[in-house]
Amino acid sequence: MEETTITQTGSRNRMKFIMGGAMIVAAVIYLIVSSTQASAQYFLTIDELVARADEVADRDLRISGAVIGDSIEYDSKNLILTFDVAHVAGDNDELEAEGGLAAALNAAVMDPTRSRITVVYEGPIPDLLQNEAQAIMTGRLQGDGTFLADELLLKCPTKYEEAVPEQASDN
């Protein structure tokens, strides 16, 4: 008699813990799913961006391209930075086929037939912004065809063996 009560409370206890655990798991899943939906950004190459300009006009995007050094302009009064980026492959195999990231970036900048886009960014000019750097930007495509970046990450694979930590900026 007494034994059954103990097992009963035991299993009731077990249920309680399983329910509690399930609730936590459900909460974590909910947080992941809803946050993914809220902050997902298409990751596009410049080619894809140009091709799908209409479709992605109102979305948060993340794009990557090669910085064209000659195009860098900085209005230091208003901290408005503009520069052009050229298409580089997004796929690692394609990059390797071009001889690695450094070579691919160089080819991108040298090749005037590649699709290009102008990026506008407001803030201090990042130290790593230079010719043939890889820029990864989040932001939106504007009506005038420029890309308004609110975050700008840069890396320069040419100069150092180590891929240098990116310089980031939030606005």
Partner: peptide, 14 residues
């Protein structure tokens, strides 16, 4: 077939 990334807002929110 489409690469989609999540940024800092995802981590902060979740």
């Amino acid at each position: 077939g489409q690469k989609v990334t999540v940024g800092p807002p995802f981590y902060e929110r979740a």
